[in-house]
Design a protein around this nucleic acid. Structure first.
Lengths: 132, 132
DNA sequence: GTGCCACCTGTAGCGACTACAGGATCAAGA
DNA sequence: TCTTGATCCTGTAGTCGCTACAGGTGGCAC
C-alpha cells in the first residue's frame, strides 16, 4: 500500500509520463510529495484527478476550463453552478462548431456533385475556392 | 501598372505579411521576382493564388491538400479528378467530425440537464467526467 | 555491491503561424 | 540631390499542448 510511481500512474490513466510532468508544470495537476531521492510519489487521489483531466481534455474542454473545474473543488467534492456553467459554455462552442461544419458540408457536397470530374476548363470545386 | 509589394498583397487578400513569407518558405506560394534591392514584387496571379490558399485554409483543407491542388495546376487551369477526390476526402473528414461533435453535444446536453446546479454532493457533470 | 530499470531535469521538436529586432530600400517632397 | 519616413528585408524566437530526447541519478532485487 505504498505510493504510486509516475510510471504506474501513466499506465493506469493512459497519460504519457512526459505529459503528467507537463500537467504539473503548468498547474493542472498538483505536485505530489517526493521520495528522499526526488522521485514523485502519487496516491489514489492523483489517479482520479488525472483520469478526470484526461477525459475532460478528450471531450474538448480547454486546459483553462479543466483548471477552473479542479480549482472549484475537483472531482469528488460538491458540484456547483460554476461547473455547470463551464459545461454549458462548452456545449455552446460545440453547437457553433457543428453549425459551421454543417454549412461547410453542404457547400462541399453540392460543389462536388456539380464537378464533372473530367478535365473540363471549368471546375466547380476550384470555382468554389476562388470565389469567396 | 507596376508590380504589387507585399504590403498591398497583404491588404488585398487579408493575409498577414509574415504569413505570406511563411507560405513562400514552405512552398505553398511560388516565390515572386524581386526588385534590385530585394523587395518581392507580386502580380495579379499571386493575388488570385493567395486568395485561393486563404479560402481553402479557412474551409479546413490542410496545407498539404492546398499544395496538392495548386500543384495540379492551380486556379484557372483545368479541373481534374484529383481535385474532386481531395474535396471528397475533405468532406468525409468533415462528416466524421460532425458525427463526433453530435455525440458530444448530446452527452453534454443531457448531463447539464440532470445537474441540479446546487451544491449537492452528486453532480452529473462531474460524474460524466470521472466515469469514462 | 552490482546490475538494470525507472525516474529525474532540462532542452528541443512538432505545425502553422505570429511577432519582433535590427537593418536596408523605396518613393515622395524640399 | 538629399532627407525623411514608411515599407520592406532576414533571421530568430515566441505561441499552444504536448512529445521526445540526452545525460545523469534513484530504487530495488539478486
Amino acid at each position: 500500500m505504498t505510493g504510486i510511481p509516475i510510471g504506474e500512474l501513466s499506465r493506469r490513466t493512459g497519460v504519457n509520463i512526459e505529459t503528467i510532468r507537463y500537467f504539473e508544470k503548468v498547474g493542472i495537476l498538483p505536485p505530489p510529495p517526493r521520495t528522499g531521492g526526488g522521485h514523485r510519489v502519487y496516491d489514489e487521489g492523483h489517479v482520479r484527478a488525472l483520469g478526470f483531466i484526461r477525459r475532460a481534455r478528450e471531450l474538448g474542454f480547454t486546459p483553462d476550463e479543466v483548471r477552473a473545474i479542479l480549482n472549484l473543488g475537483g472531482p469528488g467534492k460538491a458540484c456547483c453552478n460554476e461547473v455547470r456553467d463551464i459545461a454549458a459554455h462548452h456545449l455552446e462552442r460545440v453547437r457553433v462548431k457543428m453549425a459551421d461544419l454543417g454549412q461547410l458540408e453542404r457547400l462541399l457536397a453540392t460543389t462536388i456533385e456539380q464537378c464533372s470530374g473530367g478535365t473540363a476548363p471549368d471546375c466547380a470545386v476550384i470555382d468554389m475556392l476562388e470565389h469567396s
